[in-house]
Every structure is written in C-alpha cells, then in structure tokens.
C-alpha cells in the first residue's frame, strides 16, 4: 500500500478515522447487526406467531428447514431469478450504455431520461405492468398479436416459467437504466485515445469492443454484478405484489418463502432459521466476490 501519509501525520489517522466512521458504522450495526442477532436468537427457539415466546429448541428449526424440500426449491427459484436478472439487465444495460456513449443529436437528453423507469416506485411499476399485461385494456397482448409474435392473447403469469420470465423482464425494465448509467460512467473512464489508436490500426467496431471496451469495463461490471446479485436476491416487493410466489410456487424465491413462513404459516422460528442460512450464503458469496474490490485499488 503506497499511499502517502497526509500532512497531519499517520498517527492521528486512526483516531480521526474512528471518529468519522463511528456514526456510519454505528447506524449499520444498529439496523443490521442487532436485528440479525435477534433473528439468530429466534431461529434457535420454537416460536410460532411473531412476538410470542417459545422454548429453546437448539438446532431443530435448522434441521427441519434444511431437510424440507421447499427451502431448496425456493433457493433454486432464487438462483434462476438472480441469474435471469443479471443476464437480462447486463445485456440491456450494456446495449444502452454503448448507445449512450456514442455522439448523436439529443444524447445528453437521452442520458438523463433513460433513467426514468428507475425513479418509479415499485408499487407503481406493479400497477403499470399489471394493467399493460391484462387482457382488459392491456396493450401488450394486442401489440404482440399485431406483430405476429403470438396469435391469441397469452397469459403472462399462467405458468411458473411464464410468470418468472414476466417478472424478470419487469424487474429488469425497472433496473436496467440504472445499471446502464453506471456502465456508461465506466465507459467514459476509458480514455478515447486508446480507441483512436485502435481505429488507426484498422480494428473494426467488434474487434475494438472485444479488445478494449470489454476488458476495461470489467471492474465496473464486477462490482455491479456483486451488488446486483445481492440486491436482486433480496427483492421482495415486486414479486409479492405481482405473483405472491405463484403460480404453483413457480416464483417463490427465498425471501417470499421466508415471508410466507413467518406471516402465513406462523413459524417464526423456521423463518428465522431460513433467514440465517440465506444470510450466511449471501455473505459468503459477497466476501468471495468482493475479495477483488478492496479500497487498495483506489489510490490511483
């Protein structure tokens, strides 16, 4: 680590850092760590309805949850959900970012307004798409019929895979512009002269993308993938409001299952156990991925 010490000297850095970090870290600890400890405590007890008390049950809840198929089923659905979102959002966002990185009339306006879908509350996103996809007044079915893609109205939530696809597309519709702007920021950090040198060498657009853009975008993509994975794994509201995990469990991701177990099946202990397992999995994944993102890269 080759940073230069600041003028006030290395010795006082630690104290200053402590003072500066006390508030941000204290808040995160109070709102994340403390509740998590409480969740761990609940997971070791046989608690049914929230708020009621229950006897100590050791690891019984964990044993039951981990041997029950629904947990693994939900985990599988979660993997599909996370991977689906990552793929769709990356493709859409990368396309959008590449387009917005070009120079054309109106690009400044486009760069601002592409973000429009991201500033819409989830509840409104749900209202919009429930209406657009419904056969009573929805535009999507007639449009697809006009384009010759389907020949009769289809049910976008009629089966597990259909519902999952619809959900992924709707969630991606909402998030891809944000990712696109983040990627655009990454693209803008690539010095233009590299491209010019490559163009002089006669490299085509595709070759330039593969040789320059893609590798240089890697760090940004990596962070966005980590964040995106964690964030989309935790997405609950849009799934709950659109399908509530249905049909027939086809979109029952882990957060949905946890919610149902806690508030529908009234097994708070089981829900907490699932939560702890999920958190451990996610923290492990995050740590592995983040290993490459320590602040040491910042210096220069």
């Amino acid at each position: 680590m080759a940073s230069k010490p600041t003028s006030s000297g290395r010795g006082s850095d630690g104290r200053v850092a402590f003072l500066l970090l006390a508030l941000p870290l204290g808040l995160l600890a109070a709102t994340l760590i403390v509740p998590m400890i409480s969740a761990i405590n609940i997971s070791l007890r046989d608690i049914r309805v929230i708020g009621s008390d229950g006897p100590f049950a050791g690891l019984d809840n964990y044993a039951r949850v981990l041997t029950d198929g629904t947990f693994w089923h939900a985990l599988g659905i979660s993997v599909v959900w996370v991977v689906g979102n990552a793929v769709v959002q990356t493709i859409l966002a990368l396309t959008a970012a590449l387009v917005l990185n070009e120079k054309f009339p109106g690009v400044r306006v486009a760069r601002v307004w592409i973000i429009l879908t991201w500033i819409i509350p989830t509840v409104v996103v749900v209202i919009i798409w429930r209406w657009l996809l419904s056969p009573s007044g929805g535009m999507v079915n007639p449009l697809l019929i006009q384009l010759g893609i389907i020949d009769r109205p289809m049910g976008f939530f009629a089966s597990g895979p259909a519902a999952m696809t619809s959900l992924i597309l709707i969630n991606s519709w909402r998030w891809f512009p944000f990712v696109a702007i983040m990627l655009l920021a990454g693209l803008q950090r690539i010095p233009g002269d590299i491209y010019e040198a490559a163009a002089v060498d006669g490299a085509g657009a595709v070759a330039r993308f593969r040789a320059i853009t893609w590798p240089l975008l890697q760090p940004t993509l990596l962070v966005l993938t980590v964040m995106g994975t964690l964030l989309s794994f935790n997405v609950f509201d849009i799934i709950w409001l659109l399908t509530a995990g249905g049909p027939a469990g086809g979109t029952e991701t882990l957060p949905v299952l946890i919610y149902e177990t806690a508030f529908k099946a009234y097994r708070m202990g089981d829900a907490a156990a699932m939560s702890v397992v999920a958190s451990v999995l996610m923290i492990g994944l995050a740590l592995v991925l983040l290993d490459r993102l320590a602040p040491k890269e910042t210096g220069r």
């Binding site: 870290l25 509740p35 980590v226 964690l230 935790n234 946890i258 995050a286 983040l290 993102l293």
Partner: peptide, 23 residues
C-alpha cells in the same frame, strides 16, 4: 486515511446488502 482494519471494514460495509431485508 490510513488505519488498521481499513480493508476489512470496507468489505464489511459492502456485505450489508447480503442481509435479506425481510429478515
């Protein structure tokens, strides 16, 4: 600033998103 445990703390902060909000 330079201080002990900086990298570890920074990583811990990023891990915040690993807690399912529902939990």
């Amino acid at each position: 600033l330079e201080f002990r445990g900086r990298d570890m703390l920074y990583r811990l902060i990023m891990v915040a998103y690993a807690f399912p909000s529902i939990v």
